[in-house]
Design a protein around this nucleic acid. Sequence first.
DNA 1: TAAATATCCTAGTAATTTGCTAGGAATTGA
DNA 2: TCAATTCCTAGCAAATTACTAGGATATTTA
Lengths: 152, 152
Amino acid sequence: MKLSTKGRYGLRAMIDLARYSEKEPVSISSIAMRQDISERYLEQLVGLLKKAGLVRSIRGATGGYVLTKSAGEISVGDVLRALEGSLEPVRCAAFYSEEGCMASDGCVTKYVWQKINDSINEAVDKMMLDELVRESRIMNPNGGSENPKCNI
Amino acid sequence: MKLSTKGRYGLRAMIDLARYSEKEPVSISSIAMRQDISERYLEQLVGLLKKAGLVRSIRGATGGYVLTKSAGEISVGDVLRALEGSLEPVRCAAFYSEEGCMASDGCVTKYVWQKINDSINEAVDKMMLDELVRESRIMNPNGGSENPKCNI
DNA sequence: TAAATATCCTAGTAATTTGCTAGGAATTGA
DNA sequence: TCAATTCCTAGCAAATTACTAGGATATTTA
């Protein structure tokens, strides 16, 4: 039940991007430097955020990325699902996904997975990015990593 | 953010065990047959449940396993944590676990991981095993797998 | 007492997933 | 033109997962 580095790094990157993209587009390299994430790997993560429509890219020199919506309209859930694919604990946990399961009715544990799925989604969908950006400015006024010395 | 087969199979096994161990100990092989799980693999899973103190073993012929407490006193959370180790989405999400992280204060995302962790634990800790056993008897009165034809 | 049925313990291992690195093409501002 | 950027795909080592396997130990029953 662990989040991968995609989710962990990607959320940090997104907070950073939200924080620094108000005046001008933010480049991958600047996020990578501040957040201490491999530039090449981060490229791929931001690619996922773009594919999900959370960020927009500006190509060429002085290019970079900006949010497509305000930080107050983007939830942690939006970000994590864009990066991790889905947060459901089991491949059949979302009520709409019958993917590969013939049980549908006779399955007792499916009820459990759905409850877990619902509670995760509820938690992540009520945390919005602007709140985390505010937090970041307070905790780390001079900029830099959202989690200094974090080796997790 | 997926549960492994340990958690998935293990919870099914535990529901089965709770359902059939009222009169006599339940053997690994009978659970394995009903739930269609590899006997040898299931041995290991039940070993984890025993180590966590949720079941007690009776060795020798006619032996098997029984619950150490009533099914109403065992939560889904107890079972899943016994099997998966911890349900925290990131290794620093539980407020007590500073494991490997030097950030403690300056970390913005930790707040997010804690919220997710709390919501997962709240969900799994309020579902008790007896409820699932009741559900199982209704859905599947003749016994057999908790999730027939489930290939997940 | 021997056989059958259990749990118990540890090691090995193939397949999958993760967490990157690498190369290079395309775009754009100065 | 050139430097800085995004964009796209492939490859790959390390870790993890999901088992299988072998065999020791305990207990009941014939």
